[in-house]
Amino acid sequence: MNTLSADSQFHRQLILVNGLLPAALLVFDGWRGSLGANPVEFVTRTTGVVALFFLLLALAVTPLRQLYGWTWLLKQRRLLGLYAFFYALAHLWTYILGDRGGQLSTIAADIARRPFITLGMLSFACMVPLALTSSQAMIKQLGPKRWRQLHRLTYVVAIGGVIHYAMIVKSDLTYPALFAMVLTLLLGYRLRQVWQRG
């Protein structure tokens, strides 16, 4: 008889379902026409925020494991990261197809001239190698040490993502500030460890 904290199948199902839920709700609301007056804006904002949410959850795994002994979380970390990638991809596609209407020339101009778009694109680009190497086989192929080093890029992605969010709001920084606070705590925890070790 295993305990609940050892029931990794349950954890996986829990994260799978809760991770899909925002996407399902978006699709459902889209189907019944209740995404509000500006659906493109709402979907863009929601997918972006959910992506940041999963990024921070993935980054919280190690501190939670070490502080509270929740070792079971480690097995779910790659799934959390993949969800962050999934929502970031949805965010990007909403921007390309919805916001820019698929006009590639205006997208290129945006990347070149709008720093917050540039930053968003760069952060997304950093996620691609992480998503591609998220399989068990890739961990083996790279070796766990190199894999972990590569996946520290997650911090870069999260920093870029939070700044990207802060740069688009007009004046109300409440949400970006909340994300920034959590990210600072997570990053601070890891940096303190590095200093204490070295």
Partner: peptide, 20 residues
């Protein structure tokens, strides 16, 4: 387990609703 299922999905849906 049922409680965790209900609680977590309600929290996720609730979070979605706060944005909408």
């Amino acid at each position: 387990k049922a409680g965790i299922w209900a609680g977590s999905t309600l929290a996720t849906a609730g979070l979605y609703q706060t944005f909408k």
